[in-house]
Structures are given as structure tokens and as C-alpha cells.
Simulated assay, not measured.
Amino acid sequence: MHPLLSLFPAGLLAIAATAAHADVVVNFTEPEHYTDAAYTRAFASETDRAEVQRDIARHLGRLAERSLPRDQTLTIDVRDIDLAGWFEPWHARTGHDVRILRDITWPRIKLAYTLKRGDQVFASGEDRLVDMNYLMVTNTYPGSDRLRYEKPMLDAWFARIVGRHESAGSD
């Protein structure tokens, strides 16, 4: 599956992952105001934020492809991203920012979602995803994955939302 990427002038990056089984649309609302949405620097440029947004949208698209029922559409509005760790410039001896992971710098994502079957909305809400134990649990994503700590949090949220409403809306 190859997500369709399109930039909108209002600062939204909308990614529609259309699979044979399901649809997910991920909107990134006002990404210039996100807490921490860059892989390699404390002060993110538009390009830095776009990388993170692309990777999050791809991951959500893969989750939808695997487990969202074919007749459902999930729309996700990402309202804030705070990646695991902090940039601590005093550690940067090479002139590059260094992201330091500590037990108090957990990943956070604020989002709203709408789950539909056809034109009927049968679930919606807002969630603030936080994984305070991100350094203490077994992580199955490789160390080279730049969203290694955010993906398990998104996986758990997705399973909870889709699983809770799996049979909703069916008559």
C-alpha cells in the first residue's frame, strides 16, 4: 500500500491510506504549534515536521490495512505530537542536537477521531496518548525505527478504538 500524500495550504497534511480493506485519513492540524515533532533538532522546520507526520500516517495506514473492517472509515486529526525524549543542547559536542531519553520524557500524541460506516458516524472522541512506561517495557520495534517509542502507543490506541467499535453500526 502506498499512501496518497497531499499538502493543503491551511497547514494540514492529509494522508489517505486506501487499502482494499479499509480507509484511514490522517490530518495534522496546525503542526507548526506541535510540542516536539522533529527527529533531529529542537526547533523543527516544516520539512522536519513533514517527516514525522509522514511516518505516523504510514504507520496508522498499516494498522488500518491490517485490522480496520472494510466498510469503515477512520478519520484522525492529530492535534499535538511530543516525541519521546528531549533535546538537550548541552550534550551536543558535535554541533548537532541530541535527543536524550529519560523516564520523564515520555511520548505523547493528542488526537481526535471519527469512525464511520458509510455516512453513519458510530464513534468519535478525543484522546491524549501517553506512554509513561516507554523505557520499561519490551519494545518489538527495531532500535533504528525513528518512531520506536510512539508506535507501541499508537498500536494500543488503535486496537482499543477499532476493537471497541468493531461490531458497532452493524444491524
Rank of each mutant, 00 (worst) to 15 (best):
D131N: 13
S124D: 09
T75C: 03
T29I: 15
G125H: 07
A17H: 15
G125A: 09
L83V: 11
V25A: 14
L60G: 09
Y141E: 10
P69E: 05
I76K: 05
L7N: 10
G118R: 12
L101C: 00
L111A: 12
S170P: 00
L13N: 12
E30A: 15
R70Q: 08
V24F: 05
L13K: 13
E150K: 03
A37G: 03
V130T: 13
E30G: 12
D71F: 03
R146K: 11
R49V: 14
W157V: 07
G61I: 06
A92L: 02
L147E: 02
D97N: 05
R58M: 10
D77I: 10
H165M: 00
P142M: 04
V24E: 06
D97E: 05
T75I: 12
G11T: 06
H33K: 15
S67V: 04
L7M: 09
D119V: 15
Y134T: 10
R146W: 01
T140I: 12
A57W: 05
E126M: 09
D80G: 08
L7D: 13
E166Y: 01
D119N: 15
G163N: 06
L135A: 06
L74I: 06
R49P: 04
D119E: 15
A22C: 13
R160V: 02
S124G: 08
T35C: 00
A42W: 00
H21A: 15
T18I: 15
K116D: 07
D71K: 07
A16L: 14
L129Y: 01
I161G: 00
G11I: 06
L63F: 02
V78H: 02
Y134W: 08
P3S: 08
T18W: 13
R128I: 12
S124P: 00
R54H: 07
G169Q: 02
R160E: 07
A38H: 01
M1C: 09
R70F: 04
F8M: 13
G118P: 05
P9D: 11
D155E: 09
A37H: 01
Y39M: 10
G95I: 09
M136A: 14
F28K: 12
Q120P: 00
G143T: 04
T47W: 04
D23S: 14
D36T: 02
H59F: 12
I161D: 00
I100Q: 03
H91Y: 08
G169F: 02
E126G: 10
D171I: 07
A42I: 01
R66G: 07
T18S: 15
D171W: 02
N27W: 11
N27Q: 12
G11F: 03
A20G: 14
H21Y: 13
I104C: 10
I56M: 14
A16G: 14
R93L: 04
I15T: 15
Q53P: 00
R117D: 03
R79A: 10
